[in-house]
Design a protein around this nucleic acid. Structure first.
Lengths: 348, 348
DNA sequence: CTTGGAGTTGGAAACGTTTCCATATACGCT
DNA sequence: AGCGTATATGGAAACGTTTCCAACTCCAAG
């Protein structure tokens, strides 16, 4: 019951040396005679000694932990991101404390507070909004923060490094592709205008159309909140109102899902009746019939890079980011052409 | 630069009281006069004091952290599981240290070691194999462990509580459904025979067939390793060798994916030419054309329950599990009928 | 034989908490 | 007035490390 766990003292006693020596042997620093080293190692093995990270962290003022904050771990993009962070953290012998904000700034603030208490070495976040006050607070208490995806403004405000996908180019490539196929009335399903991502992608959409000399039609641009239901409703309303559209670009995989379901609901053949493409490549895109053309965003790399940025001399990273005005790392996207897009049925 | 972080001592000094009093105020235990309480609170606010979990954990010998170990966070089942754990942990004010074993026992052992060093309050694991030696070690150093999914034998061996989906019943329901539709030559795509899950599902498959008086045909049962490539190869070989089969049950969502792709590759219409069902419901099942019939496993609940089991008086839980011979918690599955199964084209 | 450095070693302080214990104060009784 | 009790408070120990610093041993050089 009262099995007091064994400490460095026990090992020292068993080996007949001082605790300092044990520490030196185990951490490999300092000089110890081979003879003592052997004795200590034997004692440690004998007792099945497990050093406590608590004691060490307290002394070293460094936990070897990083916080990871995403809206939702079940989202495929977030999951890939997490995998990337895990991969990098593992290779740098850091461990990862994860939590989900569920897109709720209040919850996010709480989590950040907890991570501060835990004295994590840094936080990687896909923030609800990067300019929320708790991020400034985190930086103020000396925590380094790295933002991932849709946080440009926040990174600026807080002076934290950021890793982004080149969504503007991603949207552009998809639109160019669709227009190249002959589409002129292209619907866009976008995220909430309140979020940086939602705004940016919609802007890139209209911008590209203008650049290609296609007059944008505001009735073809629909917004949804980030829930499944809202996405479905948005898609349904778009398809219903505008039976003249020949293609749809979904601004997220959730919206892409909605587009596919609604098209099926309306008995529209893809791509004969309507072409569909989406931002964000996910596993099911390949399984759809027809497989869905999508803009792949390098989620895993983004996580890896963010972690690297945070851990590889964190002060430097933060400082550099601030000095350079928070110029974020931007990773390229890639248009994955599959079978869901074709020439429009009725040109003009 | 040398911004030594402020401690309880600073607050005590600022408020003109002893550290003990500050601790009492902040932790809400013991008695303090309203006047002092106010002064302390003011000082803490003034200094923006953040208590250090390190000091507290060291003193309390309890970290408020649990370890979570899954093969792969990007797997939809694992992701849901993680979400469930996060939900429960959050409500109990615990934080979660996550890592991925990538199905590698050696890596798993390392991670467990790290978690032991971190002095987590417990570990939730979807283990590579529950009877691996490091699990016994973990228990020996006084760590409580809860297994999730395919770990029956491990739970027995280690005496840890386990949360399982009722896969046997799940497979049974799918097979009964297919046989009920008239299928007699049903292919089964199974996981590796080396894993408990792989064995159990395949066994349930043949068992059910026997119970339904359908003579099992060993040529219709194919194994794959857990990689995507291997799944595809297995599915391809099954479809190629046995053009006489009228239905396929995939033993995992990865194998289901393979079945769908191969069927499409072979120009088989679903469900006209071949019916497909799979174990494990995932988001894309609904997006397939036709949507895939699948056996839903309550991943999120499993995570939640496991966390609950671990945290709600962990000693008790472990002891009870041991006393009862490790009788695991078994959660029901549900057959979600969609459009991918129909009567066989050529009966007999 | 003395001196000095190199190589080993152990004691003790520090990291930031919580909590036990002792003390101090106030107050209501007898 | 004296006493007992309840409430408030602070000092100090403990949690498990790391590392500074001092001390000790050994041996070679003077």
């Amino acid at each position: 019951m009262t099995a007091r766990s064994i400490t460095i003292k026990d090992v020292a006693a068993a080996a007949g040396v001082g605790v300092a020596t044990v520490s030196r042997v185990l951490s490999g620093s300092g000089s110890v005679s081979p003879r003592t080293r052997e004795r200590v190692l034997a004692a440690a093995r004998e007792l099945d000694y497990r050093p406590s990270a608590l004691g060490r962290s307290l002394k070293l003022q460094r936990t070897g932990a990083i916080g990871l904050l995403v809206p939702d771990v079940t989202d495929p993009f977030c999951a890939e991101l997490v995998a990337g962070v895990l991969e990098c953290a593992g290779s740098l012998a850091e461990h990862v404390i994860i939590d989900a904000s569920r897109d709720d700034p209040a919850r996010e603030a709480e989590i950040v507070d907890r991570l501060v208490e835990q004295r994590v070495d840094g936080i990687i976040a896909l923030p609800t909004r990067g300019d929320a006050p708790h991020w400034a607070t985190a930086r103020r208490v000396g925590l380094s923060v790295a933002f991932v995806d849709h946080a440009t403004r926040g990174a600026d405000a807080v002076g934290a490094p950021a890793v982004l996908a080149d969504d503007r180019a991603g949207v552009r490539s998809a639109v160019e592709y669709l227009v190249g196929l002959g589409h002129r009335r292209i619907g866009f399903l976008g995220g909430p205008a309140a979020t940086p991502t939602g705004r940016l992608r919609a802007d890139a959409f209209t911008e590209t159309l203008r650049d290609l000399a296609v007059t944008p039609d505001s009735g073809l641009l629909v917004r949804a909140r980030s829930s499944r239901d809202s996405a479905y409703a948005a898609a349904a309303s778009l398809f219903q109102r505008r039976s003249d559209l020949t293609a749809v670009l979904a601004g997220s995989h959730l919206l892409g899902e909605a587009a596919v379901l609604v098209a099926r609901e309306f008995d529209l053949r893809v791509p004969a009746d309507v072409s569909i493409a989406m931002i964000g490549d996910v596993a099911w895109a390949e399984l759809c019939d027809p497989p869905l053309t999508a803009v792949a965003r390098p989620a895993r790399d983004m996580g890896y890079r963010a972690c690297e940025l945070l851990l590889r001399d964190p002060n430097r990273a933060g400082d550099r980011a601030r000095r350079e005005g928070g110029r974020p790392v931007v990773l390229p996207t890639e248009l994955i052409v599959r079978g869901s897009c074709g020439p429009p049925a009725r040109t003009r």
